[in-house]
Design a protein around this nucleic acid. Structure first.
Lengths: 85, 85
DNA sequence: ATTATATTTAGATATTTACCTAAATACCTA
DNA sequence: TAGGTATTTAGGTAAATATCTAAATATAAT
């Protein structure tokens, strides 16, 4: 859960997740949505991958990223547990 | 929401919130629960306060901290929005 | 094969963060 | 008011983070 909180603690990464909510995107398409270099976006995608918030699949020369929200269930549970004191 | 994510991105601070779920505590009582100096805990409490995840009230020489979960609603909504794509 | 495109890795830098110790502040009590 | 307790502020350090440029890797197309 640590990695998920860490991954979520960045505006750019949260926006990447929001983009991927609409549809799967290549690394390049994601990078074009930001005023940040491609290597930096690649690094953000790596952090999101480590947290399992995204999955990726290589298709030819492209790498397609997809949103994976299942790990957010733990976060939800943690928050709910905190609220129903 | 940025401040909330930032505040949540630390194991110690998350544990502080869990402690405060049970009952209100003074800064000193919170500090005693950790192997960290009081100034460090004070700093964590400041970050939690800035995120409005805790409120504090001075009672004499003590400062009593309380959990405030209302700001977590925004996080919940953000997650839910991400999930129901 | 050579060149172009897509992405990641490596290495460097500036900023932020978490922690510490020491000092300051605020309140209480004798 | 003097001394004690509770908490925060100040100042410093080491580690982590976000960013960049340059180079490496992998695939595609001519």
């Amino acid at each position: 859960m640590n990695k998920v909180f860490k991954a979520l603690n960045d505006q750019t990464r949260r926006e990447i997740l929001n983009l991927l909510k609409e549809k799967d995107l290549t690394a390049g398409e994601i990078a074009e949505a930001f005023n940040i270099t491609k290597p930096s976006i690649s690094h953000h995608l790596d952090i999101l991958s480590q947290a399992e918030l995204v999955t990726s699949e290589k298709q030819g020369q492209f790498v397609i990223y997809s949103l994976n929200t299942t790990v957010l269930d733990d976060i939800m549970k943690w928050i709910i547990n905190l609220k129903d004191a």
